[in-house]
Nucleic acid binder design. Structure first.
Length: 361
RNA sequence: GCACAGGUGGCCGAGCGGUUAAUGGCAGCAGACUGUAAAUCUGCCGCUCCUUGGAGCUACGGAGGUUCGAAUCCUCCCCUGUGCA
């Protein structure tokens, strides 16, 4: 812990096997072993210290055993810094049409070829061990919104049982949970995930139980699934005080620029979101002046940079007119430049917040 | 010159007597996107009016014709492609 503000904001750093991560931090999502459209060296130069990978996607392709044989995910994708793998729990939610949930686990059909697979907490851990990220996530069920109370309770029961099993399995395979690669990796951390729908008492109950289990960090999941922002905020505010101060707190799947700043100031250490990368590919740029739909005709001859206040490599060199043209033409470079800018913008927000938290403390 | 095949809204392309302002796709315009089945999805897309819903006008190469009714059938003309001279 480096600094703490009266409002609960934290400026800290976490020593992970591959990287000491300065927090609060925004993590770019690299589902299939790539932060879409951005090469690893560019991510490094943008200052990304930790990125995500996804258990579900990498298990299906190229296969976790393949990645294990190739020396783990870090080596496979040539990423020297920290990584976190999501457990596949979110896919249980997002691929709902193709799944069947039981206490034991989840049977689902591959979105790639329709083949049938069965995921259990143990299996998710095995896959994540093979991938070898610095942080693995417990296998959970992301409760949908809206979910009535009985449904939220049932979903929560599953998530807590699976958290226990995830932890037990990972701990009992301690010897395997060590990756030594040229980047210096070692032991793997495991985070538990707080669910509970939009019910504060369920959230509290879940948080307390997970803390008893003693995870290496705690995530708040099941948010940004369609609920009003006020609810998101309420759930986060409810859970944060229950989590141990000396461990990372991670809100999964958020958010818009103003959201991540707000949550960081409340004491959230880690966040991730596909928004900056996906929106970039769709032509939406986040700037200090607000959202910029670069496809808009009014930018056709606009010679100013995407964001005049931004110092990223894209804003230093290219005009809105050019980015619009690339987008209109469907050029690959469009996705690359848009994504680099959005990521730079998000990382810049966090950099600013970190400084500000430090100054306030 | 002869023989086939064609000429449809910005483009490509369905339709081949009424349910057709005319299927689709592209392009264009606007919007969405929150632990990535997403370089995806949604809406608008002949013109002019009025309030949703409508009203009117103009449209399927051109000119005639048949028919209650034609982008669709007939005649002539113009143009394009291919083949043969």
């Amino acid at each position: 812990m480096i600094a703490e503000t009266a409002a609960g904001g934290r400026r800290a750093q976490f020593h992970l096997p591959h990287q000491t991560v300065q927090t609060p931090v925004f993590m770019s999502v690299g589902t299939a072993g790539t932060v879409k459209a951005v090469p690893q060296d560019t991510l490094e130069s943008l200052g990304a210290e930790i990125i995500l990978g996804n258990t579900y996607h990498l298990y299906l392709r190229p296969g976790h055993e393949t990645i294990r044989r190739l020396g783990g995910l870090h080596r496979f994708i040539s990423w020297p810094r920290a990584m976190l793998t999501d457990s596949g729990g979110f896919q249980v939610f997002s691929l709902s049409a193709l799944r069947k949930v039981s206490d034991e686990g989840v049977r689902f059909r591959s979105h790639l070829d329709g083949s049938s697979h069965f995921f259990t907490p143990e299996h998710s851990m095995d896959v994540q061990i093979a991938l070898g990220a610095d942080i693995a996530m417990a296998f959970d069920e992301c409760t949908e919104y809206p979910a009535d109370r009985p449904r939220a309770i049932e979903s929560l029961r599953l998530t807590m049982a699976w958290a226990r099993r995830s932890l037990d399995h990972l701990r009992s395979h301690g010897d395997e949970v060590v990756w030594r690669d040229e980047f210096g990796g070692q032991s793997q951390n495991l985070f538990g995930i707080v669910q509970g729908g939009m019910y504060t008492d369920l959230r509290r109950q879940c948080a307390e139980r997970l803390v008893e289990m003693d995870f290496d960090g705690y995530a708040i999941g099941g948010l940004s699934v369609g609920e009003p922002r006020a609810l998101t905020l309420e759930m986060i505010a409810e859970v944060l005080p229950l989590l141990p101060k000396d461990k990372p707190r991670y809100v999964m799947g958020v958010g818009y620029p103003d959201e991540i700043e707000q949550y960081a100031r409340m004491g959230v250490d880690m966040m991730d979101c596909v928004l900056p990368t996906r929106a970039a590919r769709h032509g939406l740029l986040f700037t200090s002046e607000g959202r910029l739909n670069i496809k808009a005709k009014r930018f056709a001859e606009d010679q100013s940079p995407p964001d005049p206040a931004c110092n990223c490599p894209v804003c230093r060199r290219y005009t809105r007119a050019y980015l619009r043209h690339l987008m209109q033409s469907g050029e690959t470079l469009s996705a690359i430049l848009n994504t680099i800018h959005n990521l730079a913008y998000y990382l810049g927000i966090m950099e600013r917040v970190r400084r500000s938290l430090h100054a306030e403390a």
